[in-house]
Computed example of a mutant assay.
Amino acid sequence: MTANEQGPEPESARRRAPAGAAVLRAEKTEAIREAVFAELAAVGYARMSIEGIARRAGVGKTAVYRRWRSKLHVVLDLVSALAVQGLPTPDTGVLEDDLLMLYELTSRVLRHPVASQILPDLQAEAARNPDMAQAVQKALREGQYGVAIGIVRSAVERGEVSADLDEELALDLIAGPLYWRAVVMRAKQPKGHTQRLAKATAAALRAL
């Protein structure tokens, strides 16, 4: 039987990828992401380069450029991904306990060596770069702030705080103290600090 007698070529056989088409392998993408975090912590955003990222990830520069146009786009993508992941929302049924869980989770994140190096650098870059500022703000609002507002609204539903409280002020009260100590002052937390902070914040929210 000749090729013509065998009938038309199957559709799947005709739909071949074009020659030289790049396949973005997930494991390589993850290696690059990890390399970006390590490079940020090691040299900071200003000195970070695509060459350094590629070298640390064990890939060529082309592999990075296939995924992101520049180092800014790499970092913006990572910051946005962190926002999507977020933190779990505590649901203990008591405002003070919800705040304590949030503070303990956040404290562990902020104490991580990589986070303690990267966050101040990203904040400094955000002051100069509107795109970075928008990404950092989105990450904070959808991450830490998103969890905090969930805690506040649950407390409103339980009658623990007033339904008329100022949510923006409430978010400042919840998120500000830990960030100030860990990121701005870079000071260690004394023993029992998160417990005292949760109690004080809960009292402040009830007074709003």
Rank of each mutant, 00 (worst) to 15 (best):
T106C: 05
V94A: 13
D77N: 09
D91I: 12
G60S: 04
E157M: 15
L100V: 08
S70K: 00
A163Q: 09
A57N: 01
A163E: 07
S154W: 15
R55N: 04
R128L: 10
R158A: 14
V79A: 06
G60W: 03
R108T: 12
Q117E: 14
A115Y: 06
S154G: 15
P120K: 13
S154L: 15
A83M: 07
V152W: 09
A57V: 04
L82W: 09
S107K: 04
L95R: 09
A139Q: 14
K138F: 15
G159Q: 13
G146N: 04
L110I: 03
A54N: 01
M101Q: 06
A135Y: 12
A54E: 00
K61V: 02
P88Q: 05
S107F: 09
D91F: 11
K71P: 01
S70L: 07
T92S: 03
A81E: 02
G60I: 01
H112C: 08
G146H: 02
E142K: 02
S70Y: 02
G93A: 08
V147D: 05
V109L: 06
A135K: 13
E96H: 00
Q123T: 12
Y65P: 00
I151W: 04
I149N: 06
A133L: 12
R111C: 13
V94P: 04
G143M: 07
I50G: 00
L122H: 08
I149F: 05
R141L: 14
A155S: 12
E160I: 10
T106Q: 03
G150E: 03
L87T: 05
Q85G: 10
D121P: 02
V79K: 00
V84P: 03
Q134L: 14
A54P: 00
S162W: 14
I50L: 11
V75A: 08
M132Y: 12
L119T: 15
Q137R: 15
N129G: 06
S116T: 14
K71Q: 04
T89L: 05
I149A: 06
A148L: 09
R66D: 03
L140W: 13
L87C: 05
V59N: 00
A124H: 07
